[in-house]
Design a binder for these strands. Structure first.
Length: 431
RNA sequence: GCGGGCGUAGCCAAGUGGUUAAGGCAGCGGCUUGUGGCGCCGCCAUUCGGGGGUUCGAAUCCCCUCGCUCGCCCCA
């Protein structure tokens, strides 16, 4: 017996009945970006491994243990992108886009991380992201967040919470890191094993541990806010004031830390309680050091990414997702000459902008009507040999009780005109 | 990488050692070879994720394995 072929773990097929919410999100995002003057950029899925090591940071879990990395036939180390920002920054530097001024960019597409799948987390997952490059003002942080907030609002997603924090400047963070490590070292034995390990590699991430004992210990720890210099503090105040001015509600979360090394200052997440463990729909922040780190001129920047799977999950749960639309017309046809005419008619009707499902089965009229009904189409058009010989087509209403079955000339223009006019209770050709 | 739950048809699902594996939805064919929605009839798993074992006998018990799923971790 032949072994069954199936998709790789964590690689999900989106079947036709899954795609409507995705299409809705994509359309809403495009519209939101259009209004905000944000332009699309598309970068390759495959990049040199080096890009992510330098961009995201070797110490992060994403780079350390989650990347799809392999040698190509020329022995180059390649990696399927685990996130979008590094590639966008690489492309912007490579093509000198910043010489034309600050850039407002968006991207979308699949990302790859080798993790254990669970609700809202796949190995191939999809993000839509925004990047503002060359923008330093606190105002730009607020604008970036507002675009995400408005996009989610447009989609009708309820019960969202914006959580906000600042990571301070690189100096602030280095200073705080020392304070935190010094404090936690004194209580090392009270930490869970994960956190003990992170004490060496990435101590800030102990802050968002879910372990209650660790959290209790942290309530006595020095705070990141306490380590900020006056400039960083002032900057954060401006961001908060900007959000208030736009009436975007937020809560401060001093434990909010980003998992990728390039973030500084503003960090935020938009979460939903309806998503299970993977609650973050959108996450982002400022990354002023990244462009320089990847070989460009020092350039301030801020961005975010939102998770399509999680958003689609929310839209499906709340019932705001729709089904694929039914065709305008189902074309029933049977007989040697009729089948040829029907195909030609379907084609010209489609040129009039109508959606037409052509029955290709050659089955009995009864069967074809059964399928016409199930297609959800409002009208069935019947083309048989007897109609073709008289150059007519019969139109039969399937949904509208008030409408009557009638004959029209076998011409797309006549049919299109009839279907788009207001009153169809009378047929023009009826005696 | 670690832990829990679960694998019977395209989907939902009964069956917990006795040999023809219920039922429903969907699909296909017919009643109805040119008029749908309802109804009726028929067809649709040599087999219970896969492999091995126990037994006279296994979907049911044991072992291994694969997959799905939820959580930890991580993150969007």
């Amino acid at each position: 017996m032949v072994e069954k072929l199936q998709s790789l773990r964590g690689m999900v097929d989106l079947l036709p009945h899954h795609t409507p919410p995705w299409q809705r999100v994509e359309a809403a995002a495009r519209e939101q970006f259009r209004r905000a003057g944000v332009q699309e950029i598309r970068t390759p899925l495959l990049e040199a491994t080096e890009l992510f090591c330098r961009g995201i940071g070797e110490a992060t879990d994403v780079v350390g243990k989650e990347m799809y990395t392999f040698l190509d036939r020329g022995d180059r180390s390649c990696t399927l992108r685990p996130e979008g920002t590094a590639s966008v920054v690489r492309a912007v530097i490579q093509h000198g886009l910043l010489s034309q001024g600050p850039q407002r960019l968006w991207y979308g597409g699949p990302m790859f991380r080798y993790e254990r799948p669970q609700a809202g987390r796949q190995r191939q997952f999809h993000q839509i992201g925004l990047e503002f490059l060359g923008f330093a003002e606190a105002r730009s942080d607020v604008e970036a967040i507002a675009i995400a907030w408005d996009l989610l609002a447009d989609l009708g997603v309820q019960e969202l919470a914006l959580e906000l924090n600042t990571l301070g400047s690189n100096d602030d963070r280095a200073r705080y890191r020392d304070q935190l490590v010094a404090y936690l070292q004194q209580h090392r034995d009270q930490l869970d094993s994960d956190s003990q390990e992170r004490l060496e590699r990435n101590p800030l991430r102990i802050l968002d541990s879910k372990n209650p004992e660790t959290q209790a210990l942290l309530s006595e720890a020095p705070t990141l806010a306490g380590a900020l210099d006056s400039q960083s503090n002032e900057r954060f105040e401006q961001v908060k004031a900007g959000l208030k001015a736009l009436q975007i509600p937020f809560t401060l979360n001093p434990r909010l830390v980003r998992g990728l090394d390039y973030y500084s200052h503003t960090a935020f997440e938009i979460t939903s309680t309806k998503l299970g463990a993977q609650a973050t729909v959108c996450g982002g922040g400022r990354y002023d050091g990244l462009v320089e780190q990847l070989g460009g001129a020092p350039t301030p920047a801020i961005g975010w990414a939102l998770g399509m799977e999680r958003l689609a999950l929310l839209l499906t749960q709340t019932g705001t997702a729709q089904k694929h639309p039914a065709p305008d017309l189902y074309l029933v046809n049977r007989g040697p000459t009729a089948e040829t005419s029907a195909l030609a008619l379907a084609r010209s009707l489609r040129q009039f902008g109508l959606s037409v499902e052509l029955d290709a089965s050659g089955a009995s009229f009864g069967k074809q009507f059964k399928r016409a009904d199930r297609s959800g189409a409002a009208w069935a058009a019947i083309v048989g040999d007897s109609e073709v010989s008289r150059s007519v087509v019969r139109l039969k209403p399937l949904r509208d009780e008030a409408a009557v079955e009638c004959e029209l000339p076998l011409e797309a223009a006549a049919i299109s005109g009839f279907l788009t006019r207001e009153d169809r209770s009378l047929c023009p050709l009826d005696p």
